[in-house]
Design a protein around this nucleic acid. Structure first.
Lengths: 348, 348
DNA sequence: TCCGAGAATGTAATCGGTTACAATTGGGGT
DNA sequence: ACCCCAATTGTAACCGATTACATTCTCGGA
């Protein structure tokens, strides 16, 4: 009897319980095929030995890893963590794990990552700005359930979930119009950014619907950063006549605008109303609190995870590919509504 | 010749290349044992077949998963994402993957998660408020390299990395004293929170060093939330004589204080100086910008990942257990320095 | 010419599970 | 007493890699 230093495997448990490995396996996976008494015996032995099945071995034979992959671009913190949180919650509830890979800057890098994932995951949630679905399908292990997050030009055969940017932009447009604004500026996003394009499109649809035609000089350049918003604010102040409202296509820029206006002594919303998009944490805290469009990001992650799990369960069950749109919701705060601003009423 | 629908395995490649599986394996892992010409042949065949080795199978025989686990508590967004970002960057650089598991609220849940990780990871980064190292060692698969993040009471046999909370608190204390403050309030953190305790301790060390004894009523209760900070501010304003400075043990509370002071018309820093801890994004953006203590959180994640990788490489190489302290740095901004506040000078 | 070392390759065991299929056992029916 | 079936359990073949060990081939030196 050499002092056994071997790690406890299923055979070890089998010996201790006086049964075969098959029985142990069945007992541990509570198959109905084992006698209750035997099962008890096995479970006890396993517990005594502190036995934990080896995941790799199990995956090898079952072809399931009980893990879903999550690939994210190099992105903004808040968004980033909320997606993970949402996806993780769902995964955990189903006893799945989350393999996260972030900061993918270029396509090449993403493709290699994609291939090293082979045999590690049962499904993939992918969010990537620079990736057409074709290349994706080509490089991803085939048969791997995939759900795309974010605006996808050509979702073709792939499931996708995206935020209702268009609808959000529309809501902002209608809201500003209702407040009586007729001369509204827009601070745009980076060229080629699809989120920005959709928001813009929605806003313009609202303008068209209410019969407003905005002159081109009210469309200001922006880059989704706070500094960019600040700069846009300066440009905006030079316009005559000055617009009575601005819609910045994301909150970071909107906050940059607010800072600039504050420093220049321009009152918001009295002198000019400001609206953003994203509802980042700060927008509720900053004064004046920012009117913006809220999107439940963790819900986005959760939906994606649910979808991936569903796809990976019913393997061949020829599921129809779907595109889910996550609704967005206008949140009216102080920056567009003078009358309801308690701080103002109360004397700052 | 049945239309082969089988997934491409190493044997498939071997057949195509006209060699044995051993040779294929060696070629793919560029072992020096294979002839260069043969190797080329194999690589070509593999590429043609789009062969990607199965991770589970590989892990099973090599006993390495090339994955490190990251377990985090249910936590604040910004912190959360930065840690992941830092750890992921390091992992990726070494061709490792990151298995993330968040939102562990209770011990029980954490323990089961821990055991399901067996055979899935080569090392673990663990951050958990409620966990003594003993229970940990008991439930974690033995032999698994572990690095703890955060203040650990009894790090015993385990590696740990933690932020220099004490030093940060000390710096704040010295800073406020240098500005001439002698009556300084502190907004404390949740009972039992070790971060808070260390910050408090460092601050008090500074007070002692400069010979200041603060009366007990200046120690205000807090809970690390913005609302808690707001409430603390109200309590603080009731004190007579009123303190000339406040140190909130985290930024969220500090921002709550600022909001309250703003609403009450109390000027910061003229009427009262405010300092926080964490340097969350908002603290640089809010007006007045918040003086606080900066910690490079992604560096924290990166260091932890590096350490885990090192531990998992040299298996038996009896490495000495270490505790690394990540330095913290005082960032002086407007909320404690009237003279350098451009906004104030310029007339708000 | 023959032998042995070293290089290159192949064969088969192994990692630790799952599961198809075989084998055993105990009853119930006749 | 005998047969058949259902309920349990065991045996061994996988899953797809890695790698110890065996084998083959080449070539230089005696």
């Amino acid at each position: 009897m050499p002092s056994a230093k071997r790690k406890t495997t299923i055979r070890e448990v089998a010996r201790r319980a006086g049964v075969s490995v098959a029985t142990v396996s069945r007992a541990l996976n509570n198959s109905p095929l084992v006698d209750h008494a035997t099962s008890e015996k096995v479970l006890t032995a396993a517990r005594r030995l502190r036995y934990v099945p080896n995941a790799s071995a199990r995956s090898l034979s079952t072809r399931r890893t009980e893990t879903i992959g999550l690939i994210l671009p190099d992105m903004h913190g808040e968004f980033f963590s909320e997606i993970i949180r949402g996806a993780d919650a769902v995964a955990r509830r189903h006893h799945y794990h989350l393999l996260v890979s972030s900061t993918h800057s270029n396509r090449q890098e993403l493709e290699t990552t994609l291939s090293t994932l082979h045999g590690r995951i049962d499904g993939l949630i992918l969010m990537s700005p620079h990736l057409e679905s074709e290349t994706l399908l080509y490089h991803a292990p085939s048969e791997l359930p995939i759900v795309l997050i974010g605006p996808v030009e050509d979702a073709g055969e792939i499931d996708a979930i995206h935020v209702d940017n268009e609808g959000g932009g529309f809501q902002v447009g209608m809201h500003l119009h209702e407040l009586g604004h007729r001369r509204i500026a827009v601070v745009k996003g980076p060229k080629g950014n699809v989120d920005a394009a959709e928001r813009y499109f929605g806003f313009m649809r609202a303008m068209k619907q209410v019969g407003i035609t905005l002159p081109i000089e009210l469309m200001l350049e922006g880059d989704f950063t706070g500094a960019g918003g600040y700069q846009a604010a300066l440009n905006l102040l030079a316009l005559v006549p000055r617009p009575t409202a601005v819609f910045a296509l994301n909150d970071d820029m909107a906050i940059g605008l607010l800072r600039c206006f504050h420093e220049k002594g321009i009152r918001v919303p009295e002198d000019i109303a400001v609206a953003g998009f994203d509802d980042v944490q700060m927008s509720a805290v900053i004064r004046p609190a920012l009117t913006t469009v809220h999107v439940d990001i963790s819900e986005l992650g959760a939906l994606a995870a649910k979808r991936v799990l569903a796809l990976s369960m019913k393997e061949s069950a020829q599921q129809k590919r779907t595109t889910v749109v996550l609704p967005s919701r206008l949140i009216v705060r102080q920056s567009t509504s003078p009358a309801t601003n308690p701080v103002q009423l109360q004397r700052a």
